[in-house]
Structures are given as C-alpha cells and as structure tokens.
Design a protein around this nucleic acid. Structure first.
Lengths: 194, 194
DNA sequence: CCATAAGTTGATGACGGTCTCAACTTTGGC
DNA sequence: GCCAAAGTTGAGACCGTCATCAACTTATGG
C-alpha cells in the first residue's frame, strides 16, 4: 500500500532541490540572506526558473535552510553556557557565544536581525530555542547577580540589536560589538540598573 | 573692483538651488537620507537633471543640507544637558536627548548612522560637535559616577548604535531603544563594569 | 530687442535585481 | 522504445533607481 504523502517528486527534481538547498546554505553563509537568487541557482548548476519552481522565492528558501542552522548555533551556545558553573558567568557565556557567532556568520546574523515575516518555520525555531534560555536567565536572577526586571524579551532584544551592530561594524571595526555588548551586560548586573 | 569669488550663478539657477535645498531638507526629514532624488527634484518643482547640475548627486546634497541640522540638534542636546546640575544626570541627559532626536528625525538618524564617506562637511561637523561633549563626559568621570575607562569613542559608538536600533525598531516597537539605552547607560555607571 | 551664454528639460540608457512563461528536455511507466 | 507528464530553461518583462546629454528655454549685458 503506497500511501505516500509526498506528491512523488521526480528524481532529477529531487536532486536539484537538494543542490539548491546546499547552494543556498553556502551562499547565505558567505554573503548573508540577501544574496541574489541568481547566484544561488548558479551555484546549484541550475537556472533561476528552477529555483522558483521548487521554492516560491527567497523567503521559502530561507525557511527551508535556516531553522536547522539556527538551532545548531543556539544549542552550541547553550552547551557552552551549561559548562559554566557560576550562574552569572553562565548567562554571560550564552549571550556572548551567540554574539560571536553573529560576528562570523552572516547567515545567522541576518536570520536573527532581519524581519523574516514570511519564514514561519524559522521564526518558530528561534522562539523555541530562545525559550530554553529562560532557565539560564532565571538561574542568574535567583543567584542575585542578574537584575530581576530583565525579561526574556530583553534577552531577545539584546541578541537582535547585537546583530544590527555587527552587521554595520564588523568590517570596519571588528571589536566594536564587543564593547557595546560589554556595556549592556554590565548594565544587566544586579545593583547597576534603575 | 568685482573680485567675486562666486562664479556668478544666474538668478533662476540660484532660485532652483535654494528650492532644492529646502525640498531636500523636507524630504530627508520625512523619509530619511535614502529618499529618491527624483522626489526631491519634484518637490522643488524642478527636473532631476537640474538637481544633478547644481549638486553632483545625493552625497553633495546631503553635505549641503545636513551639517547645519546636525549641529542644531547637538547644540540642543548640549543646552539641555548643561541645564542639569548633577554631572551624571547631565551626561545621561545629553545622550538621551540625542537618542530621542534620532527617534523622531530620520534625517538626523541617517546622518549619524549611515557611512557618509562622501560628505566631508557633515563628517567634520559631527566630530566637531561631538568634541564639545567631552566636557560633560569628563565632568561625570571626575564626579566618580561615570566609569573612568569610557572614552569619547565609546560615546560615539553608543550614539551610532542607537541610530541603528532606532532605524530598525521605532515602527514596530517604539520603546525598544529606550530599553537598550537604559541597559547601556546603567553599564556606564562607575562600579558596574569590568 | 537681440545674441548668446547659462540653465533646464525629459527621454533615454544602464543597472541590478526579481519573477514568468512558452518552448524545450528528461523521466519513468507501459 | 515510446509517449505523456513532469521538469527545466533562458530570454525577456518588469521594477525602481541613478545618471547623462542633445535639444530646448531663459536670463542678462550691450
């Protein structure tokens, strides 16, 4: 009984789809999510039309490629944070690792800082992964080192704004984001804020 | 003896030049420095060609219009800051006023956050005006409330990054920049940082 | 009032990107 | 092997913007 859910994509079509996915991942990685679709098609050894056939356009391609990559990065940050005993340092590690990743991965940076309204999978993954970080945040608060008024929205905002800063400054001033991040983190310590 | 330095611009040409300047100021104010040049020409009741005749292109127009506006805004911030006695609060006022101005003036925001490499007048004015603020910064440091390692470069960076944040968030979340700014300012207080 | 230099115009081309579709090629079941 | 369905192609329409320039218009001095 062949109750296949997939509308049976032809073999060459499947092959092209996969090529496109890996080409997209590469191109995004190198040039960010705004890379011309033509270039992705070229890398995949396929015409632009095919890209539009398989996926509907840029957003769909992003949504197919990025969620996994984003999840990986955020898990890595979590892993590194969990290896740190001190609650405050653990929290700082989490944020810092995410920011470092933004600094050397345009795709990750854009995935987090662009308004990807038409990439529901990606959005979902982001919020899901970020939800996990609440544990770190609350632990730091219980330890009395993180300001009690800081929310996970603030954490999101911090990560988001760092992506903006990185995008505009990495080239000309590769350490600028570290400086601004250090200010923000200092401001999050209990006893420092309003 | 008519030792006129000006190459005697014809009367209508001068009129158009002025119209272009005010049109540009208006358009920049409403839509930011990336507003189509066509639109500026239209507002001035003039063709695009004329704009290219009088000025060489966007950058030159920006350089002709923005320095004064930027200086005004920064003077206003200084004025407001100087009205505050407490050194720390005075410093905070300066920064906050600049950020507020960014929030409701796309032209000012872009003048500060875009890389205007070909607008030397503007760049000069920005650094000149910002130099004045060092007094506020040093006064706050002498009073022991501002971290001693903070430089005027940091101040510039803070203003610059706020412009980025404002640009990307004012529409969807008008108070986001206040939150991030409050973190940064908290982090600048003596005793809070590394 | 005229001549002419100065200035303006808008149609036009280049650009860099997106997106489409009629004609062609490939696949896979028979 | 054949043929219909599935898939691919690439030229071209389209978009918004910048930038140019030959032909036209206007200001100005004599």
């Amino acid at each position: 009984m062949k109750t296949e859910g997939k509308p049976t994509l032809r073999r060459d079509a499947r092959r092209n789809q996969e090529r496109l996915l890996t080409a997209a991942a590469e191109a995004f990685r190198e040039k960010g999510l705004a890379v011309p679709l033509e270039e992705i098609a070229q890398r995949a050894g396929v015409s632009a039309g095919t890209l539009y056939n398989r996926f509907g356009g840029r957003e769909a391609l992003i949504d197919a490629v990025m969620p996994e990559l984003v999840a990986e990065r955020m898990n890595e940050a979590m892993r590194r944070a969990e290896a740190v005993d001190d609650p405050w340092e653990s929290f700082v590690t989490y944020v810092t690792v995410l920011c470092e990743q933004q600094a050397d991965d345009p795709a990750f940076r854009d995935a987090i800082s662009r308004q990807l309204q038409d990439a529901p999978e990606l959005t979902a993954r982001c919020t899901a992964e970020l939800a996990k970080s609440v544990r770190l945040l609350e632990r730091a608060q219980r330890s009395g080192t993180l300001r009690p008024d800081v929310t996970s929205d603030d954490l999101m905002l911090l990560i988001f704004t760092n992506a903006l800063i990185v995008r505009e400054t990495v080239e000309s001033n590769p350490n600028a984001w570290r400086r601004t991040l250090s200010f923000s983190l200092a401001g999050l310590r209990a006893g420092c804020g309003s």
